[in-house]
Write a protein that binds this DNA or RNA. Structure first.
Length: 588
RNA sequence: UAGUCGUUAGAUAAAUGGAAUAUCGUGUGCCUAUCAAGCACAAGUUGUGGGUUCGAAUCCGAUACGGCUAACCA
């Protein structure tokens, strides 16, 4: 049908007859002479309809409107002196149309294509029109490049791509499942996978040695700017490996993907322990593009006259008093702003937010009166304060302090606009705790199949269960959790002990994961792996502000698809088939 | 569920309690070299439903919808 894509028409075609096709990006009628910018998948080429060249084509062009579908044949010619358009790749030439076919018409656009200020609801309702823009095309071109690079890189490293089921078994723990009612087994449900975790471990028992999958995953939790109910994960698992082997594969894969997508990133990434990440940055996914580290000042506050602080400082195990220095903060922020920061951290459970200002004549602030001169000097030294700096304090339960001081760090960085764009800072966060206590219950921090650290005899040893570490790692990019993984438990006795520590009974374990535990009885190899969030990766590569931009047909925060109106009610007949009855909500 | 911001023409925005405006788009007409071209003209249920008022886009309740955030996300 076509001889050229619009983008490919160039000076070497001058004098030749070409056929191009696409959508009208703009039409300009100069009275007698009509110009049409024709766009196909990405680029634009200019058509000229001149009655002096072809009366019929010109007559047809009078009816042409934006986004009509055209097939145009004509001679390529150089644009005259001063008529070139440097903004277009094809700006040095144009096509003089002698045969024009209006293949299809279009209603006027319901919104201005390419105007990203347009309400997202409208853009999503007409998502297919937004996809027609160059910006969208470029995003999905990059996404495609990334997935192809993934397949090539892993193929070269000896990984086998295997598909695992979408209709599977509900596994409690973790996020809420999306359920699929069974017709054949009334009252029973399949679950959609939150990740192919258990299947990939079974593939290791199956002897495939190295597996990967670009896997759709489903989680029924509330949506965020970087979270969708269905998302894509690059899922990787390998046998006979230790942590270093897995990290090496992860770095090779990420390096290969980013390189193929045109980004220059290092081959090896920095590492940080989970506990350092929390103590220094108040986050298990610190953004390393800027500094703003926290400093511990609990010992100094223990000596102050303020009982609130000295009491908090008494329990060094449970509590923290952290200082966050903001270079030149006293010069940047007004006193009013500094007080306003307190409101920000209160939203995340902080009792308050103390601050000092470093003035010419020493440290000032509402809290200084509680400290001796020596201790004030100690604070200055510990925080390395210089004139013009401000320093903020958070005190209380360590998890709370980490959380709100960590958020405050990000908030400050955004406010001061010190986050460099166009930079990729990768970081491995290592040695996550095995368990976390939630409502007095021991919960797996990663998942219950994560290998805890053991001694040389393969025994789990710990003083406090909370301090027991696991062999697990997250890969963090610019403050976003790009993915994570772990070495898995492949021995029955360790798995049993972990279940026991978590308070999961043998019966419960059997019922929930019996198939996996059975499989491990038949020679499970040591194995481990990781998974990378593909959507988030593309989001970071393209600088998109929302994950919805990098998903072809995304859902809104209420988990609806505005385009198809899903979810929707179904026929009574379908419900009967599935042995389901809908309990009607009674209007109050 | 809560906090917060928002909802004005097809789109984006403006409007001290007193005539609803602008830009783009759309339609019609004019125009032979523009670069989303220019000129002229044309078309409006202020999300919905109440209230206060001589008079409401504006003030006050209510409600719907959307964005962001929190709880959730092994």
């Amino acid at each position: 049908m076509r001889t050229h894509y619009c983008a490919d028409v160039n000076e070497s075609d001058i004098g030749k007859s070409v056929t191009v096709s696409g959508w009208v990006a703009s039409r300009r009628d100069h009275g007698g002479l009509i110009f049409i910018d024709l766009r196909d998948k990405d680029q634009v080429v200019q058509l000229v309809c001149d009655p002096a060249d072809n009366v019929e084509a010109h007559k047809l062009a009078e009816d042409v409107r934006d986004q009509f579908v055209l097939i145009a044949t004509g001679k390529v010619r150089a644009r005259g002196e001063g008529l070139e358009n440097p903004k277009l790749k094809t700006g040095k030439v144009e096509i003089v149309v002698d045969n024009l076919i209006i293949e299809n018409k279009s209603l006027p656009m319901p919104f201005d294509l390419g105007d990203d200020k347009v309400n997202e609801e409208i853009r999503l309702k007409y998502r297919y029109l937004e996809l027609r823009t160059q910006k969208s095309y470029d995003i999905f071109k990059l996404r495609s490049k990334a997935t192809v690079a993934t397949r090539n890189a892993l193929d070269e490293l000896g990984f086998l791509e295997v598909e695992t089921p979408i209709m599977t078994k509900s596994t409690p723990e973790g996020a809420r499942d999306y359920l699929i009612p069974s017709r054949v087994h009334g009252g029973e449900f399949y679950a959609m996978p939150q990740s192919p975790q258990l299947f990939k471990q079974l593939l290791m028992v199956g002897g495939f040695d190295r597996y990967f999958q670009i896997a759709k995953c489903f989680r029924d939790e509330d949506l965020r700017a970087d979270r969708q109910p269905e998302f894509t994960q690059i899922d990787v698992e390998m046998s006979f490996c230790d942590q270093e082997d897995v990290i090496e594969i992860g770095e090779k894969l990420i390096h290969s993907i980013f390189t193929k997508c045109g980004f220059d990133i290092p081959e090896k990434f920095n590492r940080m322990s989970y506990s350092d990440a929390m103590e220094l940055y108040g986050s298990d996914k610190p953004d390393m593009r800027y500094d703003l580290k926290m400093v511990d000042v609990m010992d100094i506050f223990a000596r102050c006259d303020n009982e609130i602080f000295s009491n908090i400082a008494k329990d060094a195990k449970k509590n923290r008093i952290k200082a966050l220095k903001v270079p030149k903060g006293d010069e940047i922020f007004s006193k009013r702003q500094m007080k306003g920061f307190e409101d920000y951290v209160r939203k995340f459970g902080a009792g308050g937010l103390g601050y000092f200002q470093m003035k010419e004549d020493g440290l000032k602030g509402p809290l200084t009166k509680f400290f001796t001169e020596d201790d004030i000097q100690a604070i200055i030294d510990r925080c390395e304060l210089e004139v013009g700096d401000a320093v903020f304090f958070g005190a209380g339960n360590k998890k709370l302090v980490w959380d709100y001081m960590g958020r405050f760090r990000i908030y400050l960085a955004e406010m001061m606009d010190i986050i460099p764009k166009d930079r990729f800072e990768f970081l491995w966060v290592m040695d996550f705790p095995m368990f976390e206590i939630e409502d007095g219950k021991m919960k797996a921090m990663h998942h219950p199949f994560t290998m805890p650290k053991t001694d040389e005899n393969g025994k789990i040893v710990y003083d406090e269960l909370e301090d027991l570490q696991s062999i697990s790692y997250d890969i963090v990019l610019n403050g976003t959790e790009l993915g994570g993984g772990s070495i898995r438990i492949h021995k029955e006795d360790i798995q049993k002990e972990v279940f026991k520590l978590m308070g999961i009974s043998d019966e419960e374990a059997e019922e929930k994961f019996g198939f996996l535990l059975d499989a491990f009885k038949y020679g499970a190899p040591p194995h481990g792996g990781f998974a990378l969030g593909l959507d988030r990766m593309i989001m970071l590569m393209t600088g998109a502000s929302s994950i919805r931009e990098v998903i072809a047909f995304p859902k809104t925060q209420k988990a609806q698809c505005i385009l198809t109106q899903a979810p929707s009610e179904v026929d009574q007949e379908q419900l009967n088939d599935l042995s389901l009855r809908i309990r009607k909500q009674v209007q109050a």
